[in-house]
Simulated scan of single mutants.
Amino acid sequence: MKMTLTGVFLVLIGIIYTEAKNVHEDAALTGCTDTDGEDMYGLDGEEKAHADWKAGKYVMTLPEFADPFEYVEGTYEAALANQQVCKTNLETVTKAYKNPAVAQAPPMSSIYPRDDVMVGSENTLICLVTGFYPPQLNVTWTKNNHIVTKGVSTSQLRVNVNEGTFSQFYMLQFTPQPGDMYTCTVEHSALERPMTREFDVEEVPEPSLGPSVFCGVGLTLGLLGVATGTFFLVKGNQCN
């Protein structure tokens, strides 16, 4: 009998090395379930690259400003081979221990906009889910109590190397309007009930016309003052 989706067998290798009097932690992780898998490399708790099974290649996830880094040819093929080994070991362990219980770590979540919210301006709503294990989630977006599937995207699953847990970003493209209510609901095996976070557009102030009006009036008065001063200066010169 194979493990269910909540069963995960992970192999984690941590290497500590010193360079220029700075201590860094380099880690490689291979994990699998009976239906999915993960292969990634990380540095100091941050992911450097992972195997993208759909794209069929190893994908670098370092930010653009980081030092360029590439893996040698054959890294992705090695990741595929590691997955086969992992699944074989998983099946063996499952049979030997008669499908043992899996450790659980409940997720935490937060919801926030990518940019400062302006009513009527397109934006991205982000739902960050972190600190969970095993790495299977079900996340649902709603707008005004109606499920939303359009404009939804998900980041690569990220490993919190030091904790042995996972994090993931869920994004929703939206155009805020007064009165709109958005929710992000997370379901996980370690939660007794679904966890929901809300974002209320009514709490976001609409852009104020006050500063613009004030600047416009000030500029107009300034120009009128310059014109008036110029008029009397010309008259004074004519009198002289």
Rank of each mutant, 00 (worst) to 15 (best):
Lys2Val: 01
Leu5Tyr: 07
Gly7Pro: 01
Phe9Trp: 06
Phe9Cys: 04
Val11Arg: 10
Leu12Thr: 10
Leu12Asn: 11
Gly14Gln: 13
Ile15Glu: 10
Glu19Met: 11
Val23Tyr: 03
His24Glu: 02
Ala28Gly: 14
Ala28Thr: 11
Cys32Lys: 04
Thr33Ala: 02
Asp34Ile: 00
Thr35Pro: 00
Thr35Gln: 04
Gly37His: 11
Asp39His: 08
Gly42Cys: 09
Gly42Arg: 01
Glu46Met: 07
Glu46Ala: 02
Ala51Arg: 12
Asp52Lys: 10
Trp53Ala: 12
Trp53Val: 05
Lys54His: 03
Ala55Gln: 14
Lys57Pro: 07
Tyr58Gln: 09
Tyr58Thr: 08
Val59Phe: 05
Glu64Gly: 10
Phe65Thr: 06
Thr75Gln: 11
Ala79Glu: 07
Leu80Ala: 13
Ala81Gln: 12
Asn82Gly: 12
Gln83His: 14
Thr88Arg: 15
Leu90Ser: 01
Val93His: 07
Lys98Ser: 00
Lys98Ile: 00
Pro100Trp: 08
Val102Lys: 09
Ala105Ser: 13
Pro106His: 04
Pro106Glu: 01
Ile111Lys: 09
Ile111Ser: 01
Arg114Trp: 14
Asp115Glu: 14
Asp116Thr: 11
Val119Phe: 07
Val119Thr: 13
Gly120Met: 07
Ser121Arg: 15
Asn123Ile: 10
Ile126Pro: 07
Leu128Cys: 07
Thr130Val: 11
Pro134Phe: 02
Pro134Val: 03
Gln136Asp: 07
Leu137Trp: 02
Thr149Val: 05
Val152Ile: 06
Val152Arg: 02
Ser153Glu: 11
Ser153Tyr: 08
Ser155Asp: 13
Gln156Asp: 15
Leu157Asp: 05
Arg158Asp: 03
Asn160Lys: 06
Asn160Trp: 03
Thr165Leu: 09
Phe166Gly: 05
Gln168Phe: 02
Gln168Met: 11
Phe169Met: 11
Met171Arg: 11
Pro176Arg: 05
Gln177Val: 15
Pro178Asn: 08
Gly179Val: 02
Gly179Ser: 00
Glu187Thr: 14
Glu187Phe: 02
Glu187Arg: 14
Leu191Ser: 10
Val201Pro: 03
Val204Trp: 03
Ser208Trp: 04
Ser208Arg: 12
Gly210Val: 15
Pro211Trp: 02
Val213Gln: 06
Gly216Arg: 08
Val217Gly: 12
Leu219Phe: 06
Thr220Trp: 14
Leu223Arg: 10
Leu224Asn: 06
Thr230Val: 09
Val234Trp: 09
Val234Pro: 00
Lys235Gln: 14
Asn237Met: 10
Asn237Tyr: 14
Asn237Val: 15
